[in-house]
């Protein structure tokens, strides 16, 4: 089994303009999908994020850490939420991503996690 991260990218400009009834539907569909993930054992973790303007960038590479107002990437599309799922292979992960995409009404990017290093390494 491999773990995959399924990320949902929101358009920050349009996300606030979604009518409440559509938002409600989205919540219900995502909850249904999450329940399915838990019941089938694919669930590892999932979460929705606060808007990108709440982000803070931290640079700890210098002598003293530098904090600045985020987000880090200058783009209109930011990660709005994600799932981490366990799947047998990419085909299985893509199938889950298609369901997740439908539920949250947005495009989903699928990326495999690195294999865990050997425990005795």
């Amino acid at each position: 089994m491999t773990q995959y991260m399924l990320t949902v990218h929101d358009d920050t400009e349009s996300v606030g303009k979604i009518p409440p009834e559509q938002m409600q539907q989205m919540f219900e569909d995502v909850e249904k999908f999450n329940t399915k993930l838990r019941e089938t054992g694919a669930w590892v973790f999932a979460g929705g994020l606060m808007p990108a303007e709440t982000a803070t960038v931290v640079d700890g590479t210098g002598t003293a850490p530098v904090f600045s107002d985020g987000p880090y990437l200058e783009t209109k599309e930011h990660i709005g939420g994600f799932w981490v799922v366990e799947a047998a292979d990419l085909d299985a992960a893509l199938e889950l991503a298609a369901e997740g995409s439908k539920a949250c009404q947005g495009k989903v990017e699928v990326r495999p996690f690195q294999a865990e290093p050997p425990a005795d390494a």
Binding site: D89, L90, D91, A93, R111, P112, Q114
Partner: peptide
């Protein structure tokens, strides 16, 4: 290799 694209014939529905 990294994304585990499987080495098999797809399921009939796919």
């Amino acid at each position: 290799k990294a994304a585990r694209i499987p080495y098999r014939i797809p399921e009939p529905e796919d």
